[in-house]
């Protein structure tokens, strides 16, 4: 079984105030199969090096955006990254198939509670719905899309001691992605990846007991 390499592109414009994202990123740095990039540290002037970023994408099988949700989307540098790196001829369009077959995931923190992110709540939509542009970007570039791994109520996560559980979900996710043991088709039916992981029939319990082969689950994006 092939073991996947993971690229974590992390964006947090004020890391010194971070309570949740900093430890999440720190943990990602611990894995030798993960390349963890602090985008704001590498490009403090948003002067993204297109060649270097495209090389990174080519060298990895799984691409993760890690960020705190800013106005229902990514912080500015990740949008800049998409605008610059996902070029015509590289990520889409004529001969633009370099990302085909990779897996894409957003690992996010949301200030609002899970109740806020649903119809009738403050934010009216689920995170899955709000991230449709990212989902469609993944589809457009031929990547498998996973529902976002989300820490809700992130402002109080540390105080309420909810962070350790989330960090556990995060390492499980990285391990499972590395081993190719996430059932992408099944995961697609959940709103967040956390729901998939904690689902009785799939996820954490099953991960350690039985190995799920990803080979027959390959999905083809037809546009």
């Amino acid at each position: 079984m092939s073991q996947s390499k993971i690229l974590v592109l992390f964006a947090h414009p004020s890391l010194h105030r971070s309570e949740a994202n900093a430890p999440i990123f720190q943990q990602a740095c611990e894995f030798d199969f993960v390349t963890a990039v602090d985008l704001y540290a590498e490009y403090p002037r948003l002067n993204i090096d297109i060649d270097r970023e495209q090389q990174r994408l080519l060298a990895h099988d799984i691409v993760i955006f890690q960020f705190p949700i800013y106005w229902y989307s990514t912080p500015a540098i990740l949008k800049e990254w998409q605008d610059l790196v996902l070029e015509y001829g590289f990520a889409y369009g004529q001969d633009g198939n370099q990302l085909k077959g990779k897996t894409f995931l957003c690992a996010v923190t949301a200030g609002g509670s899970v109740e806020a992110y649903r119809q009738g709540g403050h934010n009216n939509f689920t995170v899955r719905e709000l991230f449709r542009p990212l989902e469609q970007t993944a589809i457009m570039t031929g990547m498998h899309y996973l529902p976002p791994l989300t820490l809700f109520g992130s402002r109080t996560a540390t105080d309420e001691n909810r962070l350790p559980l989330h960090l556990q979900h995060w390492t499980t996710t990285l391990d499972m992605l590395h081993e190719g043991q996430i059932d992408i088709q099944r995961a697609d039916s959940f709103i967040t990846l956390n729901d998939y992981l904690t689902d009785k029939t799939m996820g954490i319990e099953k991960y350690h007991s039985k190995e799920v082969g990803p080979d027959n689950l390959e999905q083809e994006d037809n546009r």
Partner: peptide, 20 residues
Amino acid sequence: KHSASERGWTPPPKGYDKKL
């Protein structure tokens, strides 16, 4: 062309969407 300086934010070629 796809130049080094103007590489960022270069629009796709005209009529590209017909070929997608």
